[in-house]
C-alpha cells in the first residue's frame, strides 16, 4: 500500500518536473503558432514566421535577450536589480555620443562596457557594502542613471543624433543591423555567445554553485566559507557590463542616443525570468529558459504591435507579468508539496 502511494507521488513529482522543464518552450511554441495564424499588417508577406521577418525580430530584440539572460543570475542570488533599464538608457546615450565624436567602434565599446562595470559596481556597493535593501538601492540608482542619461542629451533636443557639424558614421548600424549570417547580426551572435558563456558560468564553474548557495541560504553559504559579498557584488558588476553591451547594441540599432529607450526593460527582464521558471526568492533558475522567456516577450510585443494599437502594450505587459507570477507560483507550490 505504502509503496503504491510512494510511486504515485514520485510519478506525480516526475510529471511536475517535466512540466517545469518544458513549459517555457511550450508557451513560446504556442505564442509563435498563434501569431503565425494572425495576418498582421506589419508582418512581411503577411506571415509571422517568414524568415526575413524572424531575422528582423531577432536583430531588434538583442538588448532584452542579453539583459534577461544575465538577470537570471541576480534572481538566483535572491537579489534584485531595477536599474538595468536605466543602465541601458545611459549606455545607449554615451555610446551615441562617443561614436558621434569620432571614436572607433572598438574603443567606444570598451569605454561603454567599462562604464557598465562602474555602474554595476556602484549597485553592488550600495547593496552589499552599505547593506541597503536591493530593491531600494537599485531604485535609487535607477533614477540617478536615468536622470544622468537625460542630462547628457543637450537641452532642446530629445536624443543624441546627427547635427550640422557631426554625422554618425556609416558603420554605426552594422553591429545590430548588418546581416552577417542568415540575416542575423553580429549583436545577435554576441548575445548567443554571451548566453553560452553564462550557461557555462552557471553550470560548470564553482562561481555558479556559489550563486545557488548564496541565494538558497546566505548564512549557511557564509558559514561554509563562501564570500557572499564578493559573489553577489560580482553578479551586479556582470549585469552592469551586460546591460552596457546591450546599450551598444541598442544604440547601433536605433542609430541615435535615445535617453528613454531603457524604460521598462527591468520589467521585461523580470517577466522573462519568471516565465523561465526562476524562483524570485533565490536559489533556482536557468539562463537558457530566461532567454526563451525573453523570446516570448519579444514575440508578444512585436506580434501585438501589428494586431492592436500601440497603447495596448503596457496593459498586455502587465497582464503577462501577472500570468507569469501565477504560473511560477503554481509550479513552485507543487514543488514544495511533493
Amino acid at each position: 500500500m505504502s509503496s503504491n502511494c510512494e510511486s504515485t507521488i514520485s510519478r506525480g513529482y516526475k510529471a511536475k518536473r517535466i512540466i517545469k522543464e518544458i513549459y517555457a518552450y511550450v508557451i513560446l511554441v504556442v505564442v509563435v503558432a498563434v501569431l503565425s495564424m494572425l495576418k498582421g499588417e506589419l508582418f512581411q508577406r503577411g506571415n509571422f514566421l517568414f524568415p526575413a521577418n524572424v531575422a528582423n525580430l531577432l536583430r531588434m530584440s538583442v538588448p532584452i535577450l542579453m539583459i534577461s539572460s544575465a538577470f537570471t543570475l541576480i534572481f538566483i542570488t535572491g537579489n534584485m536589480d531595477l536599474s538595468v533599464g536605466s543602465i541601458l538608457s545611459l549606455t545607449t546615450v554615451v555610446n551615441a555620443i562617443l561614436v558621434l565624436n569620432g571614436f572607433s567602434f572598438l574603443v567606444s565599446l570598451i569605454i561603454v562596457v567599462a562604464l557598465g562595470v562602474l555602474l554595476g559596481t556602484i549597485n553592488g556597493f550600495l547593496v552589499m557594502k552599505l547593506r541597503i535593501t536591493p530593491v531600494i538601492a537599485t531604485l535609487i540608482t535607477m533614477n540617478a542613471y536615468q536622470g544622468l542619461a537625460r542630462y547628457l542629451v543637450p537641452p532642446g533636443i530629445s536624443s543624441i543624433t546627427n547635427t550640422e557639424t557631426q554625422k554618425m558614421p556609416e558603420w554605426m548600424g552594422f553591429f545590430s543591423k548588418g546581416q552577417v549570417f542568415m540575416g542575423l547580426s553580429w549583436a545577435f551572435i554576441v548575445a548567443i555567445v554571451l548566453l553560452i558563456a553564462l550557461v557555462i558560468l552557471q553550470k560548470k564553474t564553482v562561481f555558479g554553485k556559489y550563486l545557488v548557495a548564496a541565494g538558497g541560504n546566505r548564512t549557511a553559504a557564509e558559514l561554509s566559507g563562501i564570500n557572499v559579498v564578493k559573489v553577489v557584488w560580482g553578479v551586479y558588476i556582470l549585469l552592469g557590463a551586460v546591460s552596457a553591451l546591450a546599450g551598444v547594441a541598442r544604440a547601433s540599432y536605433l542609430l541615435i542616443g535615445e535617453p528613454y529607450t531603457g524604460v521598462g526593460a527591468e520589467t521585461e527582464a523580470i517577466i522573462a525570468c519568471l516565465l523561465g521558471g526562476t524562483v524570485f526568492s533565490g536559489g533556482e533558475g536557468s539562463v537558457v529558459k530566461s532567454f526563451v522567456g525573453a523570446l516570448i516577450i519579444v514575440c508578444l510585443t512585436f506580434g501585438l504591435k501589428s494586431v492592436i494599437p500601440e497603447y495596448w502594450q503596457l496593459l498586455a505587459k502587465g497582464a503577462v507579468l501577472v500570468f507569469a507570477v501565477v504560473l511560477n507560483h503554481l509550479l513552485s507550490k507543487e514543488r514544495i508539496a511533493s
Partner: peptide
C-alpha cells in the same frame, strides 16, 4: 495570499493600471 514578492507584483499592477488608463484614453 500567495506571498509573492511585493516589488514584482506591484510592478505588474503598475503596468496594468497605467495600461488601462492608456487604453481608455486611446494613448
Amino acid at each position: 495570499k500567495m506571498r509573492v514578492a511585493s516589488i514584482i507584483v506591484t510592478l505588474g499592477t503598475m503596468s496594468i493600471a497605467r495600461g488601462i488608463g492608456q487604453v481608455a484614453a486611446l494613448g
